[in-house]
Simulated assay, not measured.
Amino acid sequence: MEGVTEIPHGAPPETTFYEQVGGEDTFRRLVHRFYEGVAEDPLLRPMYPEEDLGPAEERLTLFLIQYWGGPTTYSQNRGHPRLRMRHAPFTVDRAAHDAWLRHMRTAVDELGLSEEHERTLWKYLTYAAATMVNTAG
């Protein structure tokens, strides 16, 4: 048939970024390392009202897993991400943006991803951080 591409039997299905980088374990390691930095950060730590950072760590982990093609547990539990709305109560200025990225950079570097995967992930994280800024300064 003209215009139809036949997929050969036995051809592997395309994998998601989530699968390519190691699945849930990779995102759990990323976010856990990130929150180790946040726990010691005098600027970011006060933005997390819970005494234990565990719930925030779990929310970010599930969000990133879903975003990158893994299970949709985040939306099943919390609905639409609405990231800007969820961050609106907090003052997110350039200093907070920079601190967030500094801790995330450390976490990404420790994953040991391929250059292409690291670049893809970092591009998204820098974009996401920029969109959360809601206060000049």
Rank of each mutant, 00 (worst) to 15 (best):
P89K: 08
R105D: 15
R29L: 03
Y48W: 05
T91V: 15
F17K: 00
T120L: 11
L60G: 07
H103T: 02
T126K: 09
Y127S: 14
L30I: 05
R33G: 03
D41N: 10
G137E: 14
Q66V: 06
H117I: 09
K123S: 15
N77C: 06
M1L: 12
G69W: 02
P49C: 08
W68S: 06
E115N: 11
H117D: 15
D52I: 08
T106I: 11
I65P: 02
Y124R: 10
T16Q: 04
P46E: 04
A88F: 12
R102Q: 15
R105V: 08
V4C: 11
F17M: 02
L53T: 01
Y124E: 03
D52K: 08
E118H: 14
T106Q: 08
L64A: 06
A88R: 13
K123I: 11
A95S: 13
P12I: 03
V31K: 01
E110W: 01
W122L: 11
F90S: 04
G54V: 09
A99R: 04
D109V: 07
G10L: 10
L43Q: 12
R29I: 01
E50S: 13
M47Q: 10
G22D: 02
Y127N: 15
K123M: 11
E14H: 15
S75M: 12
Q66K: 07
G79P: 04
E116M: 13
T61M: 02
P55S: 04
T72W: 08
V4T: 15
E118F: 08
P8W: 11
P12D: 09
E36P: 00
R59D: 03
P8D: 15
Y124H: 15
R59V: 05
E2T: 13
Y74M: 01
A95M: 10
A39F: 00
S75V: 05
V21Y: 00
M132W: 04
A96G: 12
V4E: 15
R94T: 14
T15G: 06
D52F: 07
T73M: 00
F17T: 01
G3C: 07
M132D: 04
L30N: 03
G79F: 02
G3P: 03
P8L: 14
